[in-house]
Design a binder for these strands. Structure first.
Lengths: 147, 147
DNA sequence: CAGCATCCTGACTGATACTG
DNA sequence: CAGTATCAGTCAGGATGCTG
């Protein structure tokens, strides 16, 4: 187990029926950061997105999520299951068979993630351009500094 | 420098003028993951949110972002600046003074992040409840297994 | 097929000391 | 004030081998 300790066992944050009309600031950020760290890791998002289409078995899932190791898929799925985002169904057939599917809770998360995904697809090239420009300027400055 | 290598110097992904009507799948995930990893680290989000209110100076910013070390604030700001999300303005006064502000690009990112933030605030308690229930079941199973 | 246990590398992060 | 440099600890993640 572990994986980021899997902690926060006893932590209850403020109730959800609060006003959320503006972008949260201050201590709210920690809660948002929590979710971002949760879904922002290397694999969770991809697993969620793949499962959004349809339930899948373990190795099927593994083939869909390109580059994931067997261990990390196991870990990721376990955490997602712990958080109630993914449901695990074991069929006791001759070769054991396990199905993974998004829960309604998981689907609800996939919506705001979708918003971010749209931003990403629309602006990632701009972001890379910015990096190139920044690096170009930096190298130029380095050159002039060395000259 | 470095910080996740600060690489991807030569990477050009597919153009942004693609159809984005459904939740992206497959290889698109990598791009989304890229953004999530970008904004999903421990501090970037909080810095963006704090700067969303108003521009701030270095130590002012540091006081707003609770718990961040001076080094990590420096690093985070540098990466955000590199990505064109934050603008750095140096005033050559007697004690040097540096202002940080969100660029329009940064503001555009803060919108989808806001969607996720709203989800987080509304559902984080559910998520923790799910964890508690999962852990409770697990411990119960452990007990029965040991008995 | 599905999953656990172990070892190992590297990235993130903090703490501390030092510079212009 | 606004950083840079260095040391050190923790942890995500990959690779491999083994179980039921």
């Amino acid at each position: 187990m572990r994986l980021s300790e899997l902690r926060q066992k006893r932590i209850f944050l403020r109730p959800s029926h609060m006003n959320v009309t503006t972008l949260p600031t201050g201590r709210h950020c920690r809660q948002v950061s929590e979710v971002l760290n949760r879904v922002g890791d290397k694999w969770s998002m991809q697993v969620i997105v793949v499962l959004r289409d349809q339930p899948r078995r373990f190795n099927d899932l593994r083939r869909q999520v390109n580059g994931i190791s067997q261990q990390m898929l196991t870990r990721t799925l376990k955490v997602l299951e712990r958080d109630g985002l993914v449901e695990r169904t074991v069929r006791t057939t001759s070769p054991p068979q396990v199905d993974y599917a998004l829960t309604p809770f998981g689907h609800s998360l996939s919506e705001p993630v979708r918003e971010l995904a749209i931003w990403a697809l629309a602006n990632l090239d701009t972001l890379y351009d910015n990096r190139l420009r920044y690096d170009a300027n930096n190298e130029a400055n380095d050159d002039t500094n060395q000259a």
